[in-house]
Design a protein around this nucleic acid. Structure first.
Lengths: 119, 119
DNA sequence: TTCTATAGGTACTTTTTCGTGCCTATGTTA
DNA sequence: TAACATAGGCACGAAAAAGTACCTATAGAA
């Protein structure tokens, strides 16, 4: 069956949408990262969601999974070259999100953990 | 209960995420639009999803609903001034989405309806 | 009188996404 | 020998998002 999107934004949202992907990708923009480190960095994510999302990102050609043949296992995830092009996108999203919070909740009624993470 | 986001991207995704909002917003960037027109423009959306999503966008301060006291009813939706700031975001998303499709499916195995919509 | 156009509401079902709990493998270290 | 560290799999259930079907209101036109 031939897939057909309704518009180009649907495409991006399929790739970076959902509860976790953007946050995972954000950390990967800082360089290759091991599974356990990601688990620590992405606040609140479970093992299952992490590997699941990483697998999808890999299938989408944005992330590379590198396995070191060691015990205990060591696996490292890296942005592909094309994946790097997401940095710009993530930055725009981040900026708008930050501004929006200030606009809507000028008195800090709503906060953002890691609101200081730079992109 | 105090809401707390994990990161700033979560904020944007809550506002423009989901299956329809981005597409609705895209059309609103072109100016005030009546309900029925939106229903026609946003391919495949149902009445229910349309009004539901518009209501949320209104609550989020991005869209204004203007009711004309007529029969049959006339309702017009417009981007708020702050909502205008989304144009830039939508453009970046659109561009990346378009490029990505070319990157992943260079032979047009996957297409985008309205892929020519400009932002 | 009946039908049309317009915008919206509600109950219910289906689909998608996310979370929990528990299991595997293996070399090293205590 | 037993525990540990690391990465991941799977079954199941809960929750969120989306879709379906059907209902309301009203002035004017046929």
């Amino acid at each position: 069956m031939q897939k057909q999107y309704n518009n180009r934004i649907e495409v991006v949202l399929e790739v970076i949408g959902g509860k976790w992907k953007a946050h995972i990708l954000y950390h990967l923009t800082r360089g290759p990262t091991r599974t356990g480190e990601l688990k620590r960095l992405v606040t609140g994510i479970t093992q299952k969601m992490l590997t699941e999302q990483l697998k999808e990102l890999e299938q989408d050609g944005l992330v590379v999974r590198k396995v070191y043949n060691q015990v205990p296992p060591k696996v490292e995830y890296t942005l592909t070259e094309y994946g790097q092009s997401l940095k710009e996108v993530l930055k725009v999203l981040c900026d708008w999100g930050g501004d929006y919070i200030k606009f809507r909740y000028p008195n800090g009624e709503v906060t953002v953990r890691n609101g200081n993470e730079e992109l």
